[in-house]
Design a protein around this nucleic acid. Structure first.
Lengths: 338, 338
DNA sequence: TTTCGCTAGTTTATCGTTATACTTTCGACG
DNA sequence: CGTCGAAAGTATAACGATAAACTAGCGAAA
C-alpha cells in the first residue's frame, strides 16, 4: 500500500545502467548489447515498471492515442462508429479514446479546447454543433479529420456521406412503393447553417419535386435531439393534429424507431398504412419488427477513409487536405411494401 | 501555418512578468495584484494561449479527467452508462473519456495497463473480462471504482447491481403471468468464474425451483457476445431444434431484442405464445413493439454511487473501500401478459 | 602506426508546467 | 526607530521521459 510508482530511474539504478539505456531497451533502439537488453528487461519485469505516458508525451510528442469526439455517447450511431474505428486503429497499434461534446455549448467548447485536443496524436471530430468560428480556434498543428455533415473550409481534411442523394434515394423508394404523402421526420428546411437535418430534408424535397409531389412545409417535422423518445412524441403529436400521411422518411434510424412506435400507438400499421424508411443502417435496424428499410452509408469505408486521412497527416504535417465523400445504398426490409 | 504553439513562457515574456505569475493568474492563486492579473489575462487572450495539460499533469498529477473503461462501445448499455456519467461529472468540472477494452484479450490488457490508466485522475472500470490476476496488476495508487458483476477482493471500491434478485424478479414475473417453460437466453450455469451470465442464470434457476419448476439445462441458452444478431440466431436455432417454450428471460435487453426478432421469425407471437422479459431497461426498450418488460437497475443511482466512491478516493487516497449494491425493480410492458 | 568507423553505451539539455522557498516593498505597531 | 508581517512577485528545482551529442573501446583498413 502506498508504494511509490516505479520510474525509469529506479530500473536504471537497479540494473546498473543509465536511464537512457533503459529507454533504449524499451523502445527497441539498436545501440544496446544483447545481455544488457536481457538484463534490463528482467529488472523491468521484476519491478513491474511501466512507462509514464505523460512524460513520454511531453518530451516526444507521440502517444499512440487518437481521440474521437462525438456529440453523444448514447446515440447508437456513434457507438457503432466508435467500435469500428477502435478496431481499425488497433491494427495500427494505436488506440482510441472517445469524448462527448454535445451536451451543452459550454461543454462542447471545453471538449474542443486546444488544451484537450493536444493530448492526442490526432483527432477525429464528429461534433455536429460546431461552427466555423469554433473550428478556426482549433487551427493548431494537430492532425484532424472532420466526420460529418458540416460545410467547412477546404483546408480541413474531411469525410462525409452523401446526405442529399441518400435522402433522395430513400424518398424515391417510398414513392416507387406507392407512398404519396410522405413526411420527413427530423428534417429542417431552413436552419442557421447547413447540417444533417437540412441536407436530408433537401434530398426529400428534391425527390418529391421530381415526382411532381408537393414538399409541403407541414410534412417537415423538425426535431431537437433526434432521440427515439422525441421522435415518438412528435409523430404522435402531428398525427393527433390530423396530419394525413402514408410514408415517413426518418432522418436517422434512431428517429425511425421512434416513428415506428408512434405509428403503432396511433393504430397505423407499417408498412400497410404507412411506409417507413430510415437512414444509417444501424445494427439494430435489421432486427426490428418489421425490419427497417434504410440508407446504408457504408460506414466501414468511411472509417477506413477517415483513418487514411489521419495517417497521411501523421506522416506529413503538410499533407494536402482531402475531401472524401462516401457512397450510400438502399437496404430494403419490411417497413416498405413490395 | 506551422506557427509554434504558444507556451506560458511566451505569455510571461510578452506580459513582462515571470512564468510563475502567469501560472498564478491562471490558477487563481492569491498572490497576484489586480492590475497584473488583468494584464496577464489580456495577453493570454491576445496570444491565444491554452495550458498544456500534459505538462501540468506531469508536474502536478491532477488533470480533471476520469476514464471509463467499457467492454464495447456498441453495446447500448455502455453508451447510456457513459452518457449518464459524463453528465454527472460535468457538474464537478471534470470530464469523461471512454475507452474500449473488450475486443480481445490483448487489447484488454493494453487498455488496463498501468501506463494507460495513470493518465486519469481516476478510473471507472466496467471491464467484464478481467480476472483477479489482471486486477492485481493494476494495484497502483490510482482511484478505481469497479462497476459490474465480478467477484473481486474487498480492497476494491465497487458498485454492482443485484443480479440474482433481479433475474429472480424477472423469472417470477413470467411464472406469475402463466409461463411454465421458461428459457434463459444468454445464461450460463457453469463458467470459469462468476459473471453476469451466471448470476442471472442463478436467479432464473432459483425462481423456477421455488415455483416447483425444473430448471432444465436445455432451457439455458448461452451466448458469446450478447449481440442482437447472435441472440436472434441462437433462439432461431433452438426453436428449430424443437425446444418448446412459453417464456424467455433474456439476460440483457439487447439480447431480448434479438429474441423478439427470432421469435417473430419463428411465427411465435409475443406475448401471446411466448412471454419475454429483459434486463437493463435501455432507453430503446420502451419503444419496441411490444414494449419490453424488463428489470430496471436504477442506473442513475449506480452512477451517483460510483462517482461518490471515486470522489472519496480522490479526496483521501486511503479511504476505506466500500461495496455498494444497487436496487432493481420490475418494469412491466407489453412483452408479458396481463 | 595511424586513422577510421562501428558498437555500446553515457551525459546533458530539454519538453511546459507547478511546488517550494526566497526576496522585496511597505505599512503598522510598540 | 527597529521589527514584524502581509502582499506581490521571482528564482530554482523538480515531474519522468527522450533527443542529441558525446565517449570509450576495439577491430580493420590504409
Amino acid at each position: 500500500m502506498g508504494r511509490r510508482t516505479v520510474t525509469m530511474n529506479d530500473v536504471a539504478r537497479e540494473a546498473g545502467v543509465s536511464v537512457m539505456t533503459v529507454s533504449n531497451v524499451l523502445n527497441d533502439r539498436s545501440n544496446v548489447g544483447p545481455e544488457t537488453r536481457q538484463h534490463v528487461l528482467e529488472v523491468v519485469d521484476r519491478l513491474g515498471y511501466e512507462v509514464n505516458l505523460t512524460a513520454r508525451r511531453l518530451r516526444s510528442g507521440r502517444t499512440g492515442t487518437v481521440g474521437l469526439i462525438v456529440p453523444r455517447f448514447d446515440l447508437h450511431y456513434y457507438g457503432e462508429l466508435a467500435s469500428l474505428i477502435s478496431d481499425a486503429l488497433a491494427a495500427d497499434r494505436m488506440h482510441l479514446v472517445v469524448e462527448q461534446s454535445g451536451a451543452s455549448r459550454e461543454r462542447e467548447l471545453s471538449a474542443l479546447s486546444l488544451a484537450r485536443l493536444q493530448q492526442y496524436d490526432g483527432v477525429l471530430l464528429s461534433a455536429v454543433g460546431l461552427d466555423m468560428a469554433d473550428l478556426d480556434r482549433i487551427h493548431p498543428d494537430l492532425p484532424i479529420v472532420l466526420l460529418g455533415e458540416q460545410d467547412v473550409p477546404d483546408r480541413y481534411h474531411r469525410v462525409h456521406m452523401r446526405n442529399v442523394p441518400g435522402a433522395r434515394l430513400a424518398t424515391e423508394h417510398l414513392i416507387t412503393r406507392g407512398a404519396r404523402r410522405i413526411a420527413v421526420l427530423g428534417g429542417k428546411l431552413t436552419a442557421p447553417r447547413q447540417e444533417m437535418a437540412t441536407h436530408r430534408a433537401n434530398g426529400w424535397s428534391d425527390a418529391l419535386a421530381d415526382a411532381g409531389l408537393d414538399p409541403r412545409p407541414d410534412l417537415v417535422i423538425p426535431l431537437q435531439d433526434y432521440s427515439i423518445a422525441e421522435a415518438r412524441a412528435r409523430i404522435t403529436d402531428v398525427l393527433a393534429a390530423g396530419l394525413e400521411i402514408d410514408g415517413v422518411f426518418a432522418v436517422t434510424d434512431e428517429v425511425a424507431i421512434g416513428a415506428l412506435a408512434g405509428l403503432h400507438d396511433a393504430g397505423l400499421r407499417v408498412p400497410d398504412d404507412v411506409q417507413l424508411v430510415g437512414f444509417d443502417n444501424l445494427d439494430i435496424s435489421a432486427h426490428l419488427t418489421p425490419g427497417l428499410t434504410t440508407i446504408d452509408p457504408d460506414r466501414p469505408t468511411m472509417v477506413a477513409e477517415s483513418l487514411r486521412l489521419l495517417r497521411r497527416q501523421l506522416e506529413d504535417k503538410n499533407a494536402a487536405p482531402e475531401h472524401v465523400v462516401g457512397t450510400v445504398s438502399l437496404v430494403i426490409r419490411g417497413s416498405t411494401r413490395n
